[in-house]
């Protein structure tokens, strides 16, 4: 039998066009649902140029105050990250399948971490401001709880990848759970954990700049106030200060991360 006897079989069904069509339908529906009209957007572009020109002359006269707020912002992020690392060091081993205490504890730890991750940090900040009053402390707690969810899950996944043979060798020599963790667990994942903690630190500095919007300290409140009072020049200065700081920390942290990996 020669191959020419067989016609090419019919093309199998390709879901991609249907998928793309559905996607566009969803986008269209979303535009309708959100009342966004693109013609308005285009005509609005002219005004946008005028609007942006209001930021034209940044006013740095209050710079020393901004820098102080900035320092507080960074401090909030540092403390929040510290809190998150502490929480996750305590929770992650229980949330790692190979080092957990029992199936029930494992599930509980995982669910706690999930919950912490699911709650947006600004919602937490809002709640803690209502409970503890205005100031940076609610911001610290909010960042700490939310990012502990991320870090804890990540640490747990790293711990689960530790060579089971090494853990078994620890058990075979009569080491307890905490000893196994201190000798076989944490040392094996130190590098990855440090890299990810830095990443979280970076992220927390970004978030700390907006915590002030809900009264949880930092530079965000100042920005909010200047915009509400239409002080565009001060706002421009604040945005520049925030921008430069975040860019600097982004470079520093990616440089350190490159170094340790």
């Amino acid at each position: 039998m020669t191959s020419s006897d067989n016609p090419i079989p019919p093309k199998p069904f390709n879901p991609a066009p249907a998928f793309i069509a559905v996607w566009f339908a969803v986008l269209w529906a979303s535009c309708l649902g959100l009342d966004i009209s693109f013609t308005d957007l285009l005509t609005g572009m002219d005004d946008m140029g005028e609007y942006l020109s209001r930021y034209g002359t940044p006013d740095f006269s209050d710079l020393s105050r901004y820098l102080e707020l900035l320092a507080q912002t960074v401090a909030i992020a540092v403390c929040g990250t510290f809190l998150a690392i502490t929480f996750s060091i305590l929770l992650a081993p229980t949330a790692a399948r190979n080092l957990t205490i029992g199936p029930l504890a494992y599930r509980a730890a995982r669910e706690i971490l999930n919950f912490m991750r699911a709650m947006p940090d600004l919602l937490l900040a809002l709640v803690f401001v209502a409970a503890l009053g205005l100031g940076p402390l609610p911001g610290v707690i909010a960042l700490g709880i939310h990012t502990a969810g991320f870090l804890g899950k990540f640490f747990a996944e790293c711990l689960e990848r530790v060579d089971p043979g090494v853990i078994e060798a620890m058990e075979a020599s009569g080491a307890g759970r905490t000893q196994t963790l201190m000798y076989a667990g944490w040392p094996s994942i130190l590098r990855e954990a440090a890299g990810y903690s830095l990443y979280i630190m970076d992220r927390n500095i970004r978030m700390a700049t907006v915590l002030g919007l809900v009264g949880a300290g930092g530079i965000g409140l100042a920005l909010h106030d200047t915009l509400r009072l239409f002080e565009y020049n001060e706002a421009a200065a604040l945005i520049i200060v925030i921008f430069v700081t975040l860019l600097a920390f982004d470079y520093i942290s990616s440089w350190i991360r490159k170094k340790i990996s």
Partner: peptide, 12 residues
């Protein structure tokens, strides 16, 4: 050192 710098500023 970093924590000692940050803690009072964040009212920790």
């Amino acid at each position: 050192t970093i924590l000692l710098w940050a803690a009072p500023r964040a009212e920790m």
